[in-house]
Amino acid sequence: MSYRYDFDVIAQWIAPGEKVLDLACGDGSLLRHLMAERDVQGYGVENDIDNLVACIDNGINVIQVDLEKGLAGFEDGFFDHVIMSLSLQAIHNTQGILAEMLRVGREAVVSFPNFGYWRHRQSILNGRMPVSESLPHQWFNTPNVRFFTIADFESLCELNGIEIRERLAFDEGTPVEDEANFRASVAVYRLGRGA
């Protein structure tokens, strides 16, 4: 697994020894990173059998769940952090899963590709769907089902009473300070239940 800059971003929000749930955890690389760096008690959630096997190969606890159906089996507030890294855009049940993450976790960590990134906008202006480092698929084979921008996501959080506690934005790995919705290809959020 190649180095992913968002792993370090996420790791800095995780305290040593935390209980962490990683949704759509892929081959378990992030959890492995967090186990090594933060000594977390980690569990991954996957619904793809090849990823499940990869997690087991990686020595990661992995539980098969269809995220579209929520996290019904998980207890309220059980985890310190519930993470979903670059997968929110691939789930239909956007509002449901965000609510579930903040039900079973004290905080949620969410990252997603920003469809409002200037290169993506340029693509659309040129009449083609964007393909980039953060959106590597073609329109006809993308696993993504929700197409949204940083501005869209933040207005959804406001609508659902989700508190944005921290946001970091990146242009293909380089931190972006201003005009994130235009200049950032990926955003990473630390979220909590609003007051």
Binding site: I49, I56, N61, I63, Q64
Partner: peptide
């Protein structure tokens, strides 16, 4: 099977779960 999985999870045991199609 999920009853077993979530009971183990409650106890923070190492557990993996596959539902084979």
């Amino acid at each position: 099977s999920e009853e077993i999985v979530y009971a183990l999870l409650h106890n923070q045991r190492n557990v993996s779960y596959a539902e084979i199609d």
